[in-house]
């Protein structure tokens, strides 16, 4: 790991000020991806700004509209939240399968989506439910938030403060996890979302994406058979030692079927 300066921010404004004044400063939330990135010398920040001292960012609340999760809420807290389980059970279920128990004790929703790892689970939930990302500057629709491989719509001094998920009808997430890291080789979130049926795929491509053909089929007939004959092209999908692009394309259909079956 290259050395860096460490600053523990006391507020979102303080953290935004530091990263706003220095393009090479980076924010640290749960650190479950960023610290391994530092260890591999894939990043060399001047300053690491720790958000773990910022109070009031880890709340979880539900109302008639949906669920709002503070950016620093740990995956374990979302998974264990009775409010989330009652309002959007698929979201609690997704959180309960991120990484492993120790990763879930540290990892945060804000850090996960700001990092936008192509194999992360939460991007599928945000896009699959049509969530809204709240930052210190504005609100961003999930469809506009994830822009590419490890890329988001966030500006340099923009910090995620919370994510709001609208209530959905039937919804479920299924993933084919890497057996060691538990990252999604392919994960599919299906939902009768507030604005219509959504099918969001993570792990398969450089960035989470929707499958319009499957959404239309499920809107017409919500059953696993509706998506069984629908596939996606392997062109442009991820390819690594764990799975070929063709295998990932195949898994998209399999996971979509299983997710619809799980949603009931």
């Amino acid at each position: 790991m290259y050395n860096f300066e460490y600053k523990k921010a006391g507020s979102v404004d303080e953290a935004a000020g530091i990263v706003g004044a220095d393009d090479e400063a980076k924010l640290l939330a749960g650190g479950m991806t960023y610290i391994p990135t530092l260890k591999q010398r894939l990043a060399a920040p001047t300053t690491v700004v720790d958000l773990n001292g910022v109070g009031g960012m880890d709340g979880i609340s539900a109302d008639g509209n949906g669920v709002t999760v503070g950016a620093m809420a740990r995956h374990a807290a979302v998974a264990a939240s009775a409010e989330v389980a009652a309002a959007i059970p698929a979201l609690a279920d997704l959180a309960s399968h991120i990484g492993d128990p120790q990763v879930r004790n540290r990892g945060t929703i804000g850090g996960s989506i700001a990092n936008n790892d192509p194999a992360a689970d939460y991007p599928a939930a945000l896009v699959g439910l049509g969530a809204t990302v709240q930052t210190n500057k504005r609100t961003i629709a999930a469809d506009d938030f994830f822009t590419g491989l490890f890329e988001t719509a966030l500006g340099q001094d923009e910090i995620v403060t919370a994510v709001s998920f609208p209530r959905a009808g039937k919804a479920a997430y299924m993933k084919f996890p890497n057996p060691a890291s538990r990252y999604a080789i392919v994960g599919v979130f299906v939902a009768q979302a507030a604005d219509g049926v959504r099918v969001a795929v993570t792990g398969a491509g450089p960035c989470v994406f929707r499958v319009a053909e499957m959404e239309a089929a499920l809107a017409a007939n919500w059953s696993a058979d509706s998506v069984a004959g629908l596939g996606i092209s392997a062109d442009g999908l991820n390819e690594d030692i764990h799975a070929s692009a063709e295998y990932r394309a195949h898994l998209v259909t399999v996971m979509a079927k299983r997710a619809v079956a799980k949603a009931g």
Binding site: P36, A76, R106
Partner: peptide, 9 residues
């Protein structure tokens, strides 16, 4: 809480 000490500064 259990955490991985190799992934915490």
């Amino acid at each position: 809480e259990s955490v991985k000490a190799c992934t915490l500064l």
